[in-house]
Design a protein around this nucleic acid. Structure first.
Lengths: 219, 219
DNA sequence: TCGAATTGACTGATCGATCAATCAGTGTAG
DNA sequence: CTACACTGATTGATCGATCAGTCAATTCGA
């Protein structure tokens, strides 16, 4: 694989100076969209949460759809950048290359740039949503997804593209589930305290890599 | 494990004769809730889809929340019954007992009683939702989840409850993702045609069982 | 250097549309 | 006569969107 791995560096930070209300609106929108869903979230509620007038949301983002897309664009940019950085550090020839790839994939959403439970809920509804949602996923997530599928094939040459893509999809579902679902795994496990992100990441990485190896055709 | 496995048989079919509009409203509501989300779905749109007056929805289900809960209750009852039936047929002493358990878990949502893409989308938003959604999940899905976690431990005695619960959560996330997401796995895999449910089930079962075994502590 | 004109950020009020919910009334079967 | 299934119209509330207007900062012409 010789394809350029740096093609994703879309605007890590905007060049022009943007007013501080811009980011505060995005923060508020992320919280309200996560709590109430796209349709349930009101522009009035978002404006109240951000401490600005409702009209300002339309002035900056040209409507509710634009605001929603901006929330996705900002967070996916942060996650994509962190994922590609982590992927570039993976030693694809190591015995645990597969584990390293899945760790690079699952780490950022669990980290500080991932947006936590709020964005995971937004992403969970996004990834199962309608045509508009599907376009947003294809635009903001498909390129990095293909890079990781290619990396999986390099780390485990016995896996063809289809097998790698299916394992990627399974791992993504498992990841979304545990980030977005508030302590149901702990409840079912009979654990009183919440697991740390690091402990969850270790479990998820082992599960994903082992799952993929179990899908391989017999030798 | 000697606990009663039949405690879940809540109303496979209602005893009293219910008017045919009752089921038609539920069918319509399932489609519209899946398409537009809870807040985005309008009672007017559901009534139109069902071919009845809007007031009838309130007459039968006492409001939007009641209708939503009824959709969940009906579908989860069908899925739970199918899952427990399949689980009862598993030979927990077989070498592939773990695979059989995961097949019993993942088969019903992929089958005719699972509600297809529509209900999978509803469930995906339900499982990441707010407090009301969490109560619905705990009421309708936690008992069967615990039965499957117990079965996993029987099939693989090296797994304690926590490990089984985490593997269950991972497998559930992977399952939701592939049922609710319309052909993104195929798109990423470069496959032109949609995989059959049986082929997807085989992949998911291998992935889940292999993932769990990879999480086991070294001997 | 100074005043006028322009621009961009932002507010508060208001619009028609749509929302879930209510209710009086109709028809029908037992 | 009663109980149940159902309709159609209407309610107040809330929705996203629009718009005129304020205000401060910047630019520009003389």
């Amino acid at each position: 694989m010789s394809e350029d791995r740096t093609l994703i560096a879309e605007r890590p930070t905007e060049g022009e100076d943007i007013p501080p209300s811009h980011a505060r609106i995005l923060d508020a929108a992320e919280r309200v969209f996560a709590r109430d869903g796209f349709s349930g979230a009101g522009m009035k509620a978002i404006a109240l949460e951000a401490g600005v007038a409702q009209g300002l949301l339309h002035y900056h983002f040209a409507g509710k759809d634009g605001l929603y897309a901006a929330v996705i664009a900002r967070r996916s940019g942060l996650i994509n950048a962190a994922r590609m950085t982590a992927l570039a550090r993976v030693n694809l020839a190591a015995p645990d290359a597969l584990e390293q790839v899945f760790a690079a994939f699952a780490g950022p959403p669990l980290g500080p740039e991932g947006g936590g439970v709020d964005y995971a809920r937004i992403f969970a509804t996004l990834v199962v949503g309608d045509a508009r949602d599907r376009d947003l996923v294809a635009e903001h997530y498909d390129p990095v997804a293909r890079a990781f599928i290619a990396a999986i094939q390099e780390a485990e040459p016995r896996a063809d593209q289809a097998l790698a893509a299916w394992a990627y999809s399974f791992a993504l579902g498992a990841l979304i589930g545990i980030v977005a679902r508030d302590q149901r795994p702990e409840r079912l496990a009979g654990q009183a305290e919440r697991e740390t992100s690091e402990a969850v990441l270790v479990k998820l990485v082992a599960f994903s890599a082992g799952g993929l190896r179990a899908m391989l055709p017999p030798p």
